[in-house]
Write a protein that binds this DNA or RNA. Sequence first.
DNA 1: CTATGGCCCTGGTTGC
DNA 2: TGCAACCAGGGCCATA
Length: 296
Amino acid sequence: MPELPEVETIVRDLRPHLEGRMIVDVRVNWPRAIAEPAEDVERFRAGVLGRRIVRVRRRGKLVWLCLDDGQSLVIHLRMSGRLVLLPAGSDRHLRVTFALAYANAWTPDRGEPECSYLYFHDQRKFGRIWLTRDAARMLDLLGPEPLAESFDSGELAALLAKRRGALKPLLLNQRVIAGLGNIYADEALFRAGLHPQRTADTLSEEEVVRLHSAIQAVLQHAISLHGTTFDGLFVRPGGEEGRHQEGLRVYGQAGIPCTRCGTPIERIVVGGRGTHICPRCQPLTKGKAGKQGACR
DNA sequence: CTATGGCCCTGGTTGC
DNA sequence: TGCAACCAGGGCCATA
């Protein structure tokens, strides 16, 4: 499930292969993957053919390809979407293929293929691609980027203030903060020593600071390890797996001793989502245990 | 505003 | 061994 670190990895890997390339062909095997123009393969094709990809960016969990005519391709991988540069083993889950060439056909080849491909694979068919002239309209719906310079603990405090709901569903809400999914929400809460069902507006200033650094630390750590390949769903564009799964402290670790205190990790349900906690390091009621749960 | 539940999907797991 | 039921997961939508 590509979350911020996985999408960041994808974007960084893809960038040198896509920027400057021209889309010379598109094949759509599963029209519903095209969210805009909705399921209209012909208009989608006509819109992207001959366009050059000028920038490859990320916003939250979205991959954002800026085209040379002001349009954008915005891609959400959701659960099982993949963007890969090499054809995968089976075609069964291949939904969309982009054929790419250098904008200038005569560019020296130096072993570089004349044409390369970007494949959108998606086993579970939740992923979507939007072709839009107004990417800002979509991207502005998202909350702040947790790794932005400007995102300090004061801003996080402001987001949490006046929120009566549980902490975890709030962290998963992309309109509140962009890019966290189930894995990193659980990992950040563990590092901060906070129970996912804590009411957001009851955090002390110190707890907010802890949460803020926990979020940034886990995201940065995961990016440095090229994301988490937990269930085999996420692979990098070149086919490699991430390595952050080895750093997971609670996600998917039910029954395994907590790395801090040895108490078995528990799996509970919060806001309808599977949630992993150390019941001792992340007490629901204010206690001393959580205090020492500072990120690390 | 918040909570809950259904829906979209597939493939892996569980239960019989 | 076969097969049906169930479930996870992100985001959106409807309902309460």
